[in-house]
Amino acid sequence: MSQGKNVQRTLCIIAVGSALFWSGLGYAMDASDAPEVITMDSLENHYDPVEFNHLEHTEMAACTDCHHHTLGIPPTNESCVKCHENSPEADVLSCGDCHLTDRFGIEALATLDDPQLYHRGTPGLKGAYHLNCVGCHQEVGGPIGCEDCHTMKDAGKKMFKAGKYAPVSKGEKGGH
């Protein structure tokens, strides 16, 4: 298992590296250049990391569904096309490069003070993942339950009062 993880991590690094390399050459990315599996651990406080099978998903969805306009392929969304019809391939491709982890931090919020800023409603990383993943899963009938993708850690169970933290006392409340 740990070996498998290492392999994936290596793959990730290679993928990102090659992406940078290829982008430098001005070629559009191909799905086969992408990492096969991506480990997402932004919810590690409460859940185990999620192994996202990128390769499998490239067979089910269009690249632009997730990588909106950053692959050098014209986006499908009408309002995006207005500006990004001829956008070249971007230097950075991973979700977290545009979608901030600390979306509501003081610094992130301060960027909204710039009146020139156009993308004012860009969701944070967690929001971007879920809005896109769950949105698509709902359409195509993929798994949508929280714990279909996320295995709850002890801390998560503690917060959700689930598992061994499940409430035992019942009917004590209300008083009337």
Binding site: C146, E147, M152, K158, M159, F160, K161, A162, G163, Y165, A166, P167, S169, K170, G171, K173
Partner: peptide, 22 residues
Amino acid sequence: CRSCEAACNQEQGLPEPEKPFN
């Protein structure tokens, strides 16, 4: 998903709910 309910309960130190938040 009721995560907000769970997080609120923990943050504010509110009493145990009748049912788990999931």
